[in-house]
Amino acid sequence: MPFVVVSGLSGSGKSTVLRTLEDAGFFTTDNLPPELWGTLHDLARARGLHRIAVTTDARTREFLSALDDSYARLARREEQLHILFLEADASVLIKRFNFTRREHPLGDTLLVDFARERDLLAPMRGMADTVIDTTNLSAKELSERVLALLKLDHDFRLRLMSFGFKHSPPRDVDLVLDVRTLPNPYYDLELRPKTGLDPAVAAYAFQGEDSEAFYTELRDFVRVAAERARKSGRHGYTVGIGCTGGQHRSVAVADRLVRDLADLNPQVTDHRDMKEDQG
Rank of each mutant, 00 (worst) to 15 (best):
K194C: 04
D273W: 04
A213H: 12
R73K: 07
F99V: 15
S65P: 02
V179G: 04
L147W: 02
G107I: 08
G242E: 00
E141Y: 02
H235R: 14
D270S: 12
L40D: 04
G233W: 06
D57N: 12
K194F: 00
N98I: 09
P123T: 06
L137A: 05
A252M: 04
E22S: 14
P193Q: 07
D270A: 11
L197N: 12
F214A: 12
T100D: 08
R101M: 06
V112D: 11
K14N: 06
D188G: 12
L21F: 01
N136D: 10
T29E: 11
V239L: 02
K231T: 11
R19N: 15
V176W: 00
E227K: 15
K14C: 08
A226M: 10
F221H: 12
D260H: 15
P169Q: 11
R272S: 01
K140P: 01
F165W: 14
H82D: 07
E144K: 13
L218F: 06
R102C: 06
A115L: 05
L81F: 04
S162N: 13
L197W: 04
A203H: 10
G236T: 10
E87V: 07
H82I: 03
S15A: 12
S15C: 08
A90Q: 09
G240D: 02
V131L: 12
D69F: 02
R219V: 03
R59T: 08
L18V: 14
S168L: 12
F214N: 08
R19P: 05
N184D: 10
V251E: 01
H104C: 01
R101A: 05
G48L: 03
T238R: 12
N98K: 15
L111M: 12
L21Q: 03
P183D: 10
I52A: 00
K231L: 13
A75Y: 05
L191P: 01
A46F: 02
F63I: 00
L149V: 00
A203W: 08
S168Q: 14
F97I: 03
P34I: 02
T16V: 15
A229D: 11
F156S: 10
A53N: 04
L111E: 14
V176F: 02
S10P: 03
E217V: 08
D133R: 07
L67E: 01
K151Y: 07
A44T: 10
L9G: 02
I94V: 12
D220H: 11
F165Y: 15
D198P: 10
L147A: 03
D153K: 08
D133I: 07
F85I: 05
A202R: 11
N184V: 10
R272Y: 04
T216P: 00
S138Y: 09
H271C: 00
P185Y: 09
R219E: 03
V253L: 06
T60P: 00
R77V: 04
Q278N: 13
L191T: 06
C243T: 07
D260M: 13
Y237W: 14
G25C: 03
G107T: 06
K95V: 07
K231Y: 09
Q247I: 03
Y237Q: 09
G236Q: 11
R259T: 14
A213V: 04
R249T: 00
Y215T: 03
T16C: 13
S7H: 01
V173E: 04
H82L: 08
A139Q: 14
A66K: 14
